[in-house]
Design a protein around this nucleic acid. Sequence first.
RNA 1: GGAGAGAUGGCCGAGUAGGUCGAAGGCGCUCGCCUGCUAAGCGAGUAUACUGGGAAACCGGUAUCGAGGGUUCGAAUCCCUCUCUCUCCGCCA
Length: 423
Amino acid sequence: MLDLKYIRENLDEAERRLRTRGGKSYLDGLRELDERRRTLLKEGETLKALRNSVSDEIGRTKDKSQVQDKILAMREVSHKIKGLDDELGLVDEQLQSFLLTVPNLPHGTTPIGASENDNVQVRCWGEPQKLPFAAKPHWDLGEDLGILDFERGAKITGARFTLYRGAGARMERALINLMLDLHTDQHGYQEVLPPFMVNRDSMTGTGQLPKFEDDLFKMVDPDFFLIPTAEVPVTNIHRGEILKKSDLPISYCAYTPCFRREAGSYGKDTRGLIRQHQFNKVELVKFVHPSESDAGLETLTGHAEKVLQLLGLPYRVMALCSADIGFSAAKTYDLEVWLPGQCCYREISSCSTFGDFQARRASIRFREDEKGKPEFVHTLNGSGLAVGRTLVAILENYQQEDGSVLVPPVLQPYMGGLERIVR
RNA sequence: GGAGAGAUGGCCGAGUAGGUCGAAGGCGCUCGCCUGCUAAGCGAGUAUACUGGGAAACCGGUAUCGAGGGUUCGAAUCCCUCUCUCUCCGCCA
């Protein structure tokens, strides 16, 4: 959520920055709503002040017969207040839901662009290898090796669900452990294991609601949602809290499965593990002092990159342009891993800074000075990494001409010493 | 799922015949004083949001005693709904 006061005072600038995302208009009608609200507020509060003082007077008068006229007058005033409050409630609601659907302002260093084609490559690591034989896509490798069973996944549940078997299941688990160990032991994150279902407030806090309900799996009876990313439960750990400045930065990492409807992506990536309704991810989340958020994004991105480097997977870092960053993000780096089986780079991690956007929605604050006003922290997060896609990248990059797949050395200890997956 | 108890400020905890309660008291914390140091002691201060005024310091208004609604001139106190916590029973990994 954006700061209403900031918008009020910088309407044109805010609109201009928002339009770099590509829409036509983001703040139309906001000024009128805001002014209407303040008018109603002022009127109602004046009457309330009157009522309070007169009621006080009535209370101190022992002989109530002397104040009958005042009681009657206040009955009238209360009636008016009720009317004003009702209207104010309506306007407030409109204003609130308006604000909740306005995306974040792009960061000053986010490249301006019109589509994903305008994303900017920041750096790359490793050599995208051309395999000296006909490279297979991971779905063929996985099926041939008997470690990925797409057909039965579809039978058990439906499209975009996959059954992992044997070394495949083991590798998924090994990757989760490798990533968690790295981030906790080397990068200073505290491991957390959050609920995989969250309530509406949590979804609103990080920005998935109210706008993107169609992308989520929703429970019927309790009004809960399956998490689309650990970002949601982990960022909401501190919803409504005032943190100690000395506790910042707070760094959490969490493994969770993620559940996404993938509405609107029919026909896209229908084969293989790339786009599933359920996938595993290790997520990094940071709460930082505002002055640290820019540097924080760089280090957090570095932590995600480290996983790819350890696994020896070539990748590039893309700065997403203004048209391609997510609703809540101010700036995003995508890590794209090289997939020789499909001869392309695919997103495997997305690292973003949200500025105070999520912190304002979720009311996560700290005090600069003991006596100072609470201020919003900045939140950051990034995948470190998407586990299923990492397994995809390993299969495709480490495949051999005979159809077997070598296990990256760092992963072997996590797989009982297994060096090669064969049929 | 059944029965009961509860939810007050950073914490503990008063507060039911509705008014002087944003809320006693204690602890903690901050600033000052005092004591040769420490402990103790003394004094003052110590919620948040919105909003009006002001360059600012700051001053004023409104709201908030789990959440929402109702009764009333007036509600932490009365009524209704919901959420959460705890205890007992049932069920269960």
